[in-house]
């Protein structure tokens, strides 16, 4: 049935479009890409402020800190949230949680790839890094790369603390972000906490995803944004990420 469906659909399409044929190898004809690559100043300090502003606008709680102060900030945020347990990816930089777990006030739940959704449902918080962040839209991109873990890790717990390194991981816009991302990696783009507009078309925060999103902007870091640990290859020839099929 499937193969006949395939032939019927393709035949109907060809009958409908006539002799258009293959677009060939050249660029798609006549697509005017005259839109902007970025809408605002790409000065790193301005991008940091813009990202901060847009994250706050969509009800993320934003903190700024330095690399040195990061462990203390994380410990404070977990304590303030009253968290006893925090899920983390296996490759989280060990220093991030050092202070939080030192006094045994908080217990780290490391995802070794076997944690179930039900187990994560009883964890208070999750702490991750990200692949990059888009200032203009206040968007954090997770691509299951370094310090991010599997998708369910950042989905099931109700409190997500996400660390972004500035200026290294911040880009201005979507047109700046997409070339840096690897389509093969499963991605989650996050812009503020879970929300809905389903009641009277008015935005209400907090449905199924984490209802509290805390973003820690770590200033003074170096490095370029992009898929964690991977060099971008042209489409179709990309290497699989660490979680891809071998």
């Amino acid at each position: 049935m499937t193969s006949t469906g395939r032939e019927r659909v393709l035949a109907r399409i060809r009958a409908a479009i006539g002799e258009a044929g293959s677009p060939g190898e050249e660029a798609p004809d006549g697509i005017p890409r005259t839109y902007l690559s970025a809408h605002r100043s790409e000065d790193p300090a301005a991008l940091l402020d813009l990202l901060h502003e847009n994250l706050v606008d969509y009800r993320a709680v934003v903190h700024r800190t330095t690399e040195h102060e990061l462990p203390a900030t994380v410990a404070r945020l977990l304590a303030e949230h009253g968290s006893r347990t925090v899920a983390v990816p296996a490759d989280l930089p060990p220093g991030w949680l050092a202070l939080a777990v030192a006094g045994a006030a908080v217990q780290a739940v490391v995802d070794d790839g076997a944690l179930t959704a039900a187990q994560l449902d009883s964890v208070d918080s999750v702490l991750t890094g990200c692949a990059l962040a888009v200032a203009e839209t206040g968007t954090i991109v997770l691509d299951a790369g370094a310090a991010q873990g599997r998708r369910l890790l950042t989905l099931v717990p109700d409190h997500h603390i996400c660390v972004i390194r500035a200026p290294g991981q911040i880009v201005a816009s979507l047109p700046r972000a997409l070339p840096l991302l690897d389509p093969v990696r499963p991605q989650t783009w996050i812009s503020g906490p879970s929300a809905t507009s389903d009641i009277e078309l008015d935005r209400v925060e907090g449905v199924h995803g984490p209802r509290t999103l805390e973003v820690v902007l770590v200033t003074g870091s170096r490095g370029r944004p992009g898929p964690s640990g991977a060099t971008r290859l042209s489409p179709g020839r990309r290497g699989r990420g660490p979680h891809g099929p071998e």
């Binding site: 998708r151 989650t188 812009s191």
Partner: peptide
């Protein structure tokens, strides 16, 4: 659609990934 700069969540996936999803 929702008059937002970006919607809260966008998921992008390509086939299947071992151990994730």
């Amino acid at each position: 659609s929702t008059a937002e700069r970006m919607n809260p969540y966008t998921s992008l996936w390509t086939g299947t990934s071992d151990g994730d999803g």
